Amino acid sequence: MTYAVHHLVTLALAWAAGAVMARSRWSVRAPRTGVLIWQAVALTAIMSLVGVALAVGLSPYRLGVVPALARFAADGWAGSLPAGMSAGHLLAVGAGVGLAGWLLAAFGLTCRALAGLRRRQRTLLRLVARPDPGAHEALVVEHPAVAAYCVPGRQATIVLSTGTLGLLHADELAAVLAHERAHVKERHDLALLPFTVLERAFPWIPAVRLMRRQVAALVEMRADDRAARAHGRTSLSSALRRFRASDRLPSPAGTLGGAEGDIDARLDRLTTPTRTSLPLRTLLLSTALTVASTPLSLFLLPM
């Protein structure tokens, strides 16, 4: 039961860290570090939640969760569970295994859904999109809405609408394309995947939706930073202002013009750039990774 308490403590720490991150402004100044810390928070919370149930249920074995679970499976198959294994212990083991199975199922379903969506997008693009000399290797779709987005994957594709080409100047277009290439190069779709899985598994929990929105905003800011380094903050800021002020059809959700996150906040940080110091970022990330590793060690150490 001692390790169950430890799991509860790490779960509480993860919850507190998430609350601090949700209100913190430093992550806006260091979005990549912010994404990594959000991932550590999510991993800690899930492992601690599963760990609490399994630590309670497997406590008669006095082993780490993983070896105890293996012993439990062998004993169950042989029909010789320990004398101290009560119905309450069995219920706790079932809850822990069930939660882990639910998350794995959500992961599989999410990956399948995303793969299917991207296949359909690529199929449609082959039918309606065309290359354009002014789009610099991006595909162009005839549509008046202002939109720029990427279809991630091994064969990633950047897509622009004709509304975007007609709206932006050459330097602004270059900055927008650099923004989308940053998403492709850093595989921001994979950074978002764990939070998409959690939202699918626990759609009724507001904190899960909040985490996904926060990470979605941070990856947009990270892509802004890479684009600004290559083409200047002025060009990217100007493009975002044009997207926001455009009176054409609304930008579709998931595109640069309709990206998740507050465009005003992104413009503010581009206009008045500030950075979190490297020592502070290193300290915060090290602390988050240390907390995240705690439930993992509790899965292996004797109870």
Results as ranks from 00 to 15, higher is better:
M1W: 09
T2R: 01
T2K: 00
H7P: 10
L8D: 15
T10K: 00
L11E: 13
L13K: 02
A19R: 14
M21W: 01
R23Q: 15
P31R: 03
T33G: 11
A42F: 06
L43N: 06
T44A: 08
G51S: 12
A53W: 11
G57A: 04
S59E: 14
P60N: 10
Y61V: 12
L63N: 11
G64R: 05
V65N: 14
L69M: 05
A70P: 03
R71L: 15
R71T: 15
F72I: 02
G76C: 05
W77Y: 09
L81Q: 09
A92C: 11
G94W: 01
G96D: 08
G101A: 10
W102H: 13
F107G: 13
G116D: 15
G116Y: 08
R120N: 13
R122N: 08
R122Y: 03
A129C: 00
R130W: 00
P133I: 01
A135W: 01
H136F: 06
A138Q: 02
L139E: 12
H143M: 04
P144H: 06
A148R: 00
P152Q: 07
A156N: 08
S161N: 05
S161T: 05
L165W: 09
L168V: 02
D171M: 02
D171W: 01
E172W: 01
A178W: 04
E180A: 06
R181V: 11
V184M: 06
D189M: 04
D189L: 10
A191K: 07
V197P: 09
V197R: 04
L198M: 14
E199R: 06
A201L: 01
F202L: 13
F202K: 00
P203R: 03
W204K: 06
I205E: 13
I205K: 00
A207G: 09
R213M: 09
Q214K: 09
V215W: 01
V215R: 04
D224I: 02
D224L: 01
D225M: 03
A228F: 00
R229T: 13
T234L: 07
S235M: 07
S235N: 14
L236T: 06
L236N: 11
S237H: 03
R241C: 13
A245T: 11
P252I: 04
D264A: 14
R266S: 12
L267M: 02
L267R: 02
T272E: 10
P273S: 03
T276Y: 03
S277C: 09
L284E: 14
S286G: 15
A288V: 01
T290Q: 08
P295V: 07
L300H: 10
L301E: 13
